[in-house]
Each structure stands twice: as C-alpha cells, then as structure tokens.
Amino acid sequence: MPHISLRNLTITYGDLEVLKGVTADIPDRQVTTIIGPSGCGKTTLLKSLNRLLDLNEDARLYGEILMDGINTYGQNTDILALRKTVGFLSQRPYPLPMSIYDNVAFGPRIHKLSRYEILNQIASVEKHGLLAQCSVENLFQMDMKKKNVEMDILVECYLRLSGLWDEVKDRLHGSAAQLSVGQQQRLALARTLAVGPEVILADEPTSALDPLSSQLIERQIKILKNLYTIVVVTHILRQARRIADHVIFLYMGELVEDGPADQFFDSPKDDRTRAYIKGTIS
C-alpha cells in the first residue's frame, strides 16, 4: 500500500497554476525522487505534503493528499501532529540559534515527548540495526535517575544516525552556527529525525553542499530508507539515478511520468521524459 497518495492535486498562487491535477503514489519505505526542471512545481508539491504551504497566504490547494488513506487537508487534521510525522529538510541548512544539542532536542521538547515515548522511539530505530556502532544496550543501562538522561541518549542516537556524532561529540554544547555547511545539513537531518517522523521530505538537500558533503548526505539517505519513507526533490539527474527507488517527473506543473526508477530510466514511456533524460530539454 502506498504511504502517500496525491489525488488530482492542483495548487495555485493567485492566477498562476503551479501544479495541474497531479495524481501519483509515493511508496512506503523507499526513496522517491521528484525530478524536473526548475520552476516546475517540485518544491511546492513537497511543501504541500506537510502543509508548510499554509505559510504562503496566496497558495490555494485543490484535490487531496492521502496519508495512510486519510486526507491531510481534511477538516480535523492536527497540523502539528502531521508536521511531526512528516519531517522537512530544506535546501540550505538553517541551524536554530542554539547549541548543537539543543538543535536536536528542539523538536522533542516542543512536542513535550515523555521519557517513555523517547525511549520507545529510540528502541524502534535500534530494532533496525541502524545504531550498530552505538550499542544502545549500554545507553539503556545509564543512570535513569539522572535528569534528562533520555534526552542525552536521543541526541546521541540521532546524531549517530545522521552521521555527525563523531565530529561533534566533544562540542555538543557549542554553537551550531560554527559547524561547516555540510555538517549543518547533517545536523538538520538529525533535528528532523529527532521528532520521530515516518516520512522525510528533502528539498534539494545537497544543492548548497560541496561534493564530499553531498555524498555523505546521499549515503545517509540510502541507510535511512529502511526506516522512513523518503521524498527527495532534485534537479540533478545523476543524483536521482543514484538514490531513487521511485521517480516522479514533473514538467511545467504537470505529472509526465512516474514509476519505479529502473523502468523510468531504462524504458521511459513519454517523449518528454526521454528528452529530459537525454538532456535535450531542461
């Protein structure tokens, strides 16, 4: 069963129609990439998935976005809970104006996660063997009477999960602004994961990064897809080839073609897709 389904999704800014009746499925626990030339509505689509689009007053949305079968734009949607379930990674990392530790702990704190919820969340990550090097058993034997010990564990877990722990473990309480841009982006990833989402949306997550940092982020994405449904917007075709399991191709606000990555890249059905893959249109 698909995790997220778009049903005839149309988004307008004033008179401008950015997305025109898009219908597509986003499969569970795979990397879906949304590709297409710039200005074709990729970011708008992504932002509609966790209702960040609500911040833009001009934007109007028609159609449905179903998540696990429930319309996220329905009357009774708990927006805060939706955003907790659907994390967002922006193009450039914007560390919050606080320490590295507090950046990761920010989400759990505003959602007032209890010790029980936090430990449960970590246990479910651990179950997938993603924290092999972290030896969670040891963590669980820590002195539980200590204040905020669960938050310490959480911060460590998610920093490890985003591949940043070894670089920052000695300066957790230093400013996040002093990290390099690549490190900041991985911190943003940890921050997003820390609230325990099921879906991660990433808007060209490597476009501000150097090649090495980009590679690190891509590696983390590939690891994380065992645990999360990941949607990556990118305009780099090669990146899409490297990480995608499923592809959605948008052109001028229309869905041209979507499907499994092998099929999409090896035997595209639409002429425009073929042209885009060849590089004759952009």
């Binding site: 805060l80 967002f88 919050l96 920010f106 989400g107 505003i110 943003a188 921050r191």
Partner: peptide, 9 residues
C-alpha cells in the same frame, strides 16, 4: 521560521 514550523512548532 520554516525550520521550526516544519518540526511541528
């Protein structure tokens, strides 16, 4: 602001 809103604040 978006970062914080996106985290559910």
């Amino acid at each position: 602001k978006e970062v914080s809103i996106a985290l559910g604040a």
